[in-house]
């Protein structure tokens, strides 16, 4: 469990590479970062700088090769696949491509964010939570629509609802507001801020949206795999 003052995310001397032997290519060099609980962190950098690799390492989606990554007090280096899986249930992921399940309605896609914690939950409460978050993202009229009946921005908002409905402890996001208009984008930022204030949720996102960058508590810039 996380100790009182331990940061949500702490990286120390992280190196990462792809391939092996002559084809080995290092993409991250000696990364050390500490991200506090309840903070909004923005990651920036040119394409191919390594920010996506770093985001996936922080999200426990890749194995740590060298260095230490502690998430919510848990060391990832050497952690088993099952341990990483359990940890990921405490996170929310927002992908640039929404990756909604085409045969599930907005409500069902959102509920998938809750069902990951296993059967036995109060179905009525879960349903109410899904409806509440969809409504707060302006999708009150589209709750039982399939993704094919939603616009790109609406699909992205469903993906955000799916990531946030379980009140995650950390949110990892990749350009979450890229497909949204100004009002919808601000709505998302407000939601993230509320989660940070009320539940101490930390958010790490890759974005070029200046509206969010202005609100960030910390900005990480990566160039050629190194912290700039």
């Amino acid at each position: 469990m996380m100790t009182g003052r331990e940061p949500s995310i702490r990286l120390q001397g992280v190196n990462h590479w792809f391939g092996s032997g002559e084809t080995r290519r290092q993409v991250l060099f000696d990364i050390s970062i500490s991200i506090e609980r309840g903070s909004l962190t923005v990651m920036r950098g040119p394409s191919g700088s390594g920010k996506t690799t770093l985001l996936t390492l922080m999200g426990a989606l890749r194995k740590v090769q060298e260095g230490s990554i502690r998430l919510l007090g848990q060391e990832l280096h050497g952690a088993s696949e099952a341990a990483q899986e359990m940890l990921r249930r405490r996170f929310g992921f927002i992908f640039q491509a929404h990756n909604l399940h085409e045969s599930l309605t907005a409500r069902q896609n959102t509920l998938m964010g809750l069902e990951v914690h296993g059967p036995g939950g109060d179905a009525a409460k879960q349903n109410a939570a899904a409806v509440h978050i969809l409504t707060s993202l302006g999708l009150g009229e589209r709750i039982d629509y399939l993704p094919e009946k939603l616009s790109g921005g609406q699909k992205q908002r469903v993906a955000i609802a799916r990531a946030l409905v379980s009140n995650p402890e950390i949110v990892f996001a990749d350009e979450p507001t890229a497909a949204l208009d100004k009002e919808a984008g601000l709505n998302v930022v407000r939601l993230l801020k509320t989660l940070a204030e009320t539940r101490g949720t930390s958010t790490v996102m890759v974005t070029h949206d200046t509206r969010i960058i202005d609100l960030a508590d910390m900005i990480i810039t990566i160039e050629d795999g190194r912290l700039a």
Binding site: E85, M86, L87, R88, F91, F93, L100, H101, M112, R162
Partner: peptide, 11 residues
């Protein structure tokens, strides 16, 4: 991709 998303979510 949807299955990969479920995996990422911790399923």
């Amino acid at each position: 991709k949807e299955y990969a998303t479920f995996k990422a979510m911790g399923y």
